[in-house]
Computed example of a mutant assay.
Amino acid sequence: MNNIINYVEQQQKKNYQKFPLFRTGDTLEIYIWVVENTKKRIQIFEGIVISITKKKSFNCSFTIRKLSNGIGIERVFSLYSKIIHNIKIKKRGCVRKAKLYYLRNLIGKSARIKERLI
């Protein structure tokens, strides 16, 4: 049964767009399709990846956090979602943890992440 599910997921992955490989701590720009009445447009959501779940499966999701007017906004995206048009990596972060939930309590300079040199 499990092999059948994996086979179907692999077939579905082929139909989706390839996105760049990113890790926790990276700063991403995500281009999202937004539907308003009959109009469809692209909106950019930019922030830091604070967690990635089920990285190698079809159900992979990731959480992005950004500050907007001093208020923290977190949004969870499914990697293979139809609303994601494109993903761009703006900055690679150098972090030691897999989940950056500690950033929720930090504001300003203390919430910065060092850049990873490639």
Rank of each mutant, 00 (worst) to 15 (best):
S51L: 03
G93I: 00
K54V: 05
A98V: 15
C94E: 05
S110I: 03
E9R: 00
V49N: 01
K14C: 13
G93W: 00
I50Y: 12
K56G: 15
K55G: 10
I4T: 02
I5F: 13
L21N: 15
E29D: 03
I5Y: 12
K82H: 10
K40N: 13
Q17G: 04
N69C: 05
K97T: 09
I42N: 06
K88R: 11
Y31F: 11
G93Y: 00
I73W: 02
I84V: 12
R104K: 12
G108C: 09
R92S: 00
R96E: 12
S51V: 09
I50G: 13
I87S: 01
G72C: 01
Q11C: 12
T27Y: 13
N69S: 11
L103T: 02
I84A: 00
I118F: 06
N105Q: 05
I113D: 07
M1I: 14
I64T: 08
Y31T: 14
G72W: 04
I118W: 03
G72Q: 02
N86S: 03
N2I: 11
V35D: 11
K109H: 07
K66L: 06
K14I: 14
I71P: 13
K56A: 14
N105F: 03
R112L: 14
R116V: 04
I5K: 10
Y7M: 11
K88E: 08
R23H: 06
I48P: 11
R23K: 09
S81P: 05
I84R: 00
K54A: 15
V34S: 06
G108F: 06
T27W: 08
C60Q: 02
I89H: 03
G25D: 02
I64M: 15
N59W: 14
K54E: 14
Q12D: 04
I87K: 00
I71V: 07
V8W: 07
S68E: 15
R116M: 10
E115H: 07
E115P: 08
I107Y: 05
Y31A: 08
Q12R: 13
I89E: 01
G25R: 02
G25F: 06
W33S: 11
T24L: 09
F19E: 06
F77L: 06
R23I: 08
R41D: 08
Q11S: 03
I64V: 10
T38S: 15
L103Q: 02
Y7K: 05
Q17L: 05
K18D: 11
F22R: 03
R92E: 07
T63K: 15
I71E: 15
N2R: 08
R65C: 06
K54R: 12
V8R: 03
E9D: 12
L106I: 01
R41Q: 13
N3S: 11
Q11D: 13
A111I: 01
Y80T: 00
L28W: 01
V49W: 01
I50F: 04
Q17C: 07
R23E: 07
V49L: 07
V8C: 10
E74R: 01
